[in-house]
């Protein structure tokens, strides 16, 4: 099962490293990463596979929320199918 993780906030050192280490901790595989500046905000987009994750989805969300607080960024995880449904016919 694939999901898209977005990290939006003020740019600073260590965001990618921090988020990636949370992923590793949860045994979530990162498939793709892109990074850009949108509306003056650091925006990182990750495609991840959470089929073999060590925790269930609500736990994963909690951990990501916590990581977001640590870096003062907002982290969002959304199932890939939601984007597929909305943006692809």
């Amino acid at each position: 099962m694939n999901a898209i993780v977005t990290v939006v906030g003020k740019d600073k050192v260590g965001i990618i490293a921090g988020v990636s280490s949370v992923m590793a901790e949860l045994n979530i595989n990162i498939l793709d990463i892109s990074q850009t500046i949108m509306d003056n905000y650091f925006t990182m987009i990750m495609m991840v596979d959470f089929s073999n994750a060590s925790n269930d989805i609500s736990e994963i969300r909690k951990k990501l929320d916590q990581a977001g607080k640590n870096f003062s960024v907002s982290i969002n995880l959304q199932h890939k199918d939601v984007y597929e449904a909305m943006h692809r016919i």
Binding site: S34, T43, I45, M47, Q78, K80, Y83, M86, H87
Partner: peptide, 16 residues
């Protein structure tokens, strides 16, 4: 990436 940053942000904004 399968989706553009704009598409992703549009969807996130709808929910948040």
């Amino acid at each position: 990436m399968l989706f553009s940053p704009h598409e992703i942000q549009e969807t996130i904004k709808m929910f948040s």
